[in-house]
């Protein structure tokens, strides 16, 4: 395992800027997640580190050495692709053994067998080793693909939405497993996803990307509680943070320059208004029942505020409520955070 550093890396595809002057340090043993919607350059960043794409500008340092123009094989990274990129005519065992059989490594067959069976039992595919790779379910295939990375001890594991094609149950299982494996091995991982739950649960640090730039990086807690912009704030939280225009909330005290107020669902307090409501008033127009908690949709003017509520809060559709914000976030007209 090694530290990987990107220094002002840029990549352009014809006119499109995929990665724009991106700097990022992934420390040895760290699990960094790049988060962002489709097409912001997350995958390109991974491919630049792996050497599958060449940078147009900037530097890639792996383990302190300049690898900017090195071949993929020289960089010693492991890549898990979004598609199940298995070698279809090989068995599961041979797929897992494939990277170990590289002449660059020169491992003995006994050592290969030991490592393959170790990883296979870790991923619970040890009973499938003699199966052809194509005769597996989607979840099994992706576990083989992850396993093919894990048999190696590369400088860094690069994972491109490895769980996105799996069903919800398997996704949460593998999420835990991956985090546990990373802890056990002390692996350095750069992981790309647009799934905020994966980012929140696995990352040591989350980097949020927008239009090829890294707009904020920090621990999941930092990103969640102190987003630098409305863009970052909207990336995390389910349901999404309420972003309300300043004008809607007349007499709320706000720092100067505030254009938008952000309130996470769990920070919205509702009290049933008996008679004339105090402060901001709204009407509950819809309740989503989720079992352990409810989502209340409250109409305030022409905006819709979503809140988290206890199932036995006693509030019902049509109730008039007054609204308070526990820890509001203030954003300026450009969408950037204003501390206050």
């Amino acid at each position: 395992m090694a530290e990987v550093v990107l220094e002002g890396v840029s990549k352009r595809f014809k006119e499109n800027v995929a990665v724009d002057d991106l700097s990022l340090t992934i420390s040895d043993g760290e699990f960094v997640v790049l988060l962002g919607p489709t097409g912001v350059g997350k995958t390109t960043t991974l491919r630049l580190i792996a050497g599958l794409e060449q940078v147009d500008g900037g530097k890639v340092l792996i383990g302190g050495e300049d690898a900017t123009h090195a071949e993929p094989a020289e960089r010693d990274t492991a890549f898990v692709f979004q598609q199940y990129s298995l070698y279809p005519h090989l068995t599961v065992y041979d797929n897992l053994a494939f990277p170990l059989r590289s002449p660059l490594r020169g491992l003995a067959e006994a050592e290969i067998r030991r490592r393959v069976s170790e990883v296979a039992s870790m991923l619970r595919i040890d009973d499938k080793l003699s199966n052809p790779a194509t005769r597996l379910s989607g979840g099994q295939m992706q576990r083989v693909a992850i396993g093919r990375a894990l048999v190696r001890r590369p400088n860094i594991y690069l994972m491109d939405e490895p769980l996105s094609s799996l069903d919800a149950k398997l996704r949460s299982d593998l999420r835990l497993e991956l985090k546990r494996i990373q802890n056990d091995m002390g692996a350095t991982i750069l992981y790309v996803t647009h799934d905020q739950i994966e980012a929140m649960t696995m990352a040591s640090r989350i980097g949020v990307m927008d239009a090829g730039k890294l707009v904020q990086i920090g621990t999941p807690r930092e990103i969640y509680e102190n987003p630098l912009s409305t863009y970052v704030a909207a990336r995390l939280g389910q349901p999404a943070i309420n972003l309300l225009p300043r004008a809607l909330l007349g007499d709320l005290p706000v720092p100067p320059g505030t254009a938008t107020i952000g309130a996470r669902t769990e920070h919205v307090r509702l009290t049933k208004a008996n008679g004339a409501p105090r402060g901001i008033a709204g009407t509950i127009n819809w309740i989503e029942h989720l079992g352990d908690h409810n989502h209340l949709h409250v109409a305030v003017g022409d905006a819709d505020i979503v809140t988290l509520a206890d199932p036995d809060s006693g509030l019902g559709v049509g109730d008039l409520v007054s609204i308070e914000f526990a820890r509001p976030l203030f954003f300026g007209a450009s969408g950037m955070r204003i501390s206050g």
Binding site: A50, A73, F79, Y87, F98, P99, S102, P103, R148
Partner: peptide, 15 residues
């Protein structure tokens, strides 16, 4: 043959 198979092999250090 999809490109990503070759890319996987490339990263897996296959000549």
């Amino acid at each position: 043959i999809p490109d990503y198979i070759y890319e996987a092999a490339e990263v897996d250090r296959a000549s």
